[in-house]
Design a binder for these strands. Structure first.
Lengths: 243, 243
DNA sequence: CGATCGCTTGAGCTATCTCAACCGGCGTGG
DNA sequence: CCACGCCGGTTGAGATAGCTCAAGCGATCG
């Protein structure tokens, strides 16, 4: 279920492009250590300027942003292989917070090392930019979803995305995947109210399309889910660059 | 009004960090030429894999995404100094389209050169990552806005952002700035219907807060606009990294 | 002159929100 | 070991922001 990554501290392209030996050697130097955190820990704080950057080895998290009004927006869900702190690395400070939803294992490295990576390992620097571009893509996608789909379709699409991502990471057991978030988290990520989210989930459940209970998501009818999500159900799932 | 940028083909950090002479020399090599396009030209096509990347020297554009349903989402507005094609540069293909809203002048360079930049000019590669991170931030911001604010506040916030951006680029004449888009474009960028957008604009106009007519936006009462946008009106406008 | 485009306005409808209550499980403290 | 409080989930009901449909208007263009 975790990214299989024992000796690869900076696993920038978790799926497609494993590091070669020389790179691994460098990255070992690069690596500052591993970090185990408990569920609920805040890894990055909006407005802060963390000296550490992380790659997620194991566990799930949440990126979010707090508004002046006190409302919270969930930017996206953090999965193994994700990179945390890029903004803090290249900009002055983080623009969103990151929290551990489950216990997590992180690969830690120092921000200062970022620069030596750019200087000495352009391939990895390129990867980093690639990650940022993927992130941008994902957010653009979310924007489109929230802007134009109704509640049912938004939730369906979120499920499809989560499912595909889990599949790519090998986190899928049959049609089931861990999804230990609260309904409120999903609601905040889709711009819906908790109540409406709940009622919509009930719909999907009663229609036998998908259930999400006790922290695990079960896709019962993938094709119908895609229809509801207004996605071409025959699209190649890996067309999207990362997951 | 344009980025003052006669000899700077790749103006990655338009405001803060001009290139030095050595870099300019390199970038000249890097530069493939300048391009003038008419209003309405599609610069990048979703799913395409353009061999060219651009920096906007002059003019305004639009990033958008087309959904299966045929609906369109406007990702954001393209201003002078913006970089176009990063996704195509580092990923397989663009995930959104870019269109020129006005006539535009672009600085063109070849995608192939991207790699030599990473290899030989790590500072510029770093800048590129920085740009991607900023872009990510901007989208995250949009996501939060669309997810949690009502129509009036969304439009107000869009106006504040556009105003601040124009100010940073010196495109402001008093309280007025060019904004040659259609109401439909704004609606699509905020996840609102055209009709509702129109009625909300009327509200702002009649309240003497801001007018947007004949392609120019006029902020009559910046502080009130910020209140409506639920923004701290005394925030430092440059706190946000790019604009 | 007709056609198209962007803007404007009215009217009715509904998806979604807010408020409110209740339920079961779990952890804590007496 | 029980009682209480809290948290996440569930459900109902009324209110409303925003949507869709529809029509009209002025400007521009061929």
């Amino acid at each position: 279920m975790a990214t299989k990554c024992t000796n690869c501290p900076l696993r920038l392209r978790p799926i497609f492009d494993p590091l070669n030996d020389r790179e691994i050697a460098f990255m070992q130097k690069f690596k500052a250590g591993e970090l185990e955190v408990e569920a609920g820990t805040t890894l990055m704080m909006e407005g802060s300027n963390s000296p550490q950057l992380y790659t997620v080895l194991n566990g799930l998290g949440l990126r979010y942003k707090t508004l002046e009004s006190g409302d919270r927006t969930v930017i996206n869900f953090v999965f193994p292989g994700d990179f945390i702190g890029l903004q803090a690395g290249v900009m002055k400070e983080m623009q969103h917070s990151v929290e551990a939803t489950t216990d997590m294992t992180l690969c830690v490295f120092n921000r200062k090392m970022l620069w030596s990576m750019f200087r000495d390992h352009p391939e990895r620097a390129f990867d980093l930019t690639w990650i940022a571009a993927v992130e941008e893509h994902v957010l653009g996608e979310s924007l489109a979803i929230i802007g134009h789909l109704d509640g049912l379709a938004r939730i369906a699409r979120a499920f499809v995305r989560l499912h595909d991502r889990a599949a790519a990471l090998g986190m899928l057991k049959g049609a089931e995947m861990p999804l230990p978030y609260r309904q409120q988290d999903l609601a905040d990520s889709l711009g819906l109210s908790l109540v409406h989210t709940n009622k919509t989930l009930k719909l999907l459940r009663e229609d036998g399309v998908a259930t999400w209970q006790d922290g695990s998501l079960n896709i019962l009818d993938y094709r119908r889910l895609c229809d509801i999500a207004q996605l071409d159900r025959d699209r190649e799932p890996m067309k999207r660059p990362l997951i």
